[in-house]
Amino acid sequence: MIINHPLLGPRDAAEFVYKGDAALIHRPDGMAPDALEKFIDYGYLRDNPAGEHRELWFHEQGDRSWLVVTRNTLTHEITSVELARDVARREGRSK
């Protein structure tokens, strides 16, 4: 698989480490009353869909940026690649 890195262009997926479902960007609030339940969910349960999947890839052997890659788990086709930073900001995570 080739990941089209937004800053570096097309890179071999072997340069990256796979970090799972991009929903993990949304770490629950540890102070919330239902934090325990939310963290069990966050830590252990996954959607694991057959089809389109948004997922985190870490460019360990490159510029060490985190990416959100949208990939089809049935065909391995990659349809979009974004910096995780941009996604997180857009979704209201980082200030």
Partner: peptide, 15 residues
């Protein structure tokens, strides 16, 4: 995961 989703369950599993 694909099957149990039809029963409304999310599993501690990745394929």
């Amino acid at each position: 995961s694909r099957l149990m989703e039809k029963a409304g369950m999310r599993l501690p599993i990745e394929s």
